[in-house]
């Protein structure tokens, strides 16, 4: 495949893609934190106390 077949993004498209990527990253990180804290909130600290 030659370089002519590739889509070259404009600066505006690159900036928009970066903005979307950052938002998705932050949203996923927030979800992880929310589910972690909510699990402790629902079940109490005892959920961390388990035999290995």
């Amino acid at each position: 495949m030659s370089n002519d077949d590739l889509v070259t993004l404009t600066d505006k498209q690159k900036k928009a893609r970066r903005s979307r990527n950052v938002a998705i990253g932050l949203a996923l990180a927030a979800l992880v934190i929310i589910f972690y804290l909510a699990t402790i909130a629902k079940f109490g600290p005892a959920i961390l106390d388990r035999s290995l």
Partner: peptide, 12 residues
Amino acid sequence: TIRMSEATAGDF
């Protein structure tokens, strides 16, 4: 037609 999105997080 290949359309590369220019939508920012703000647009969403």
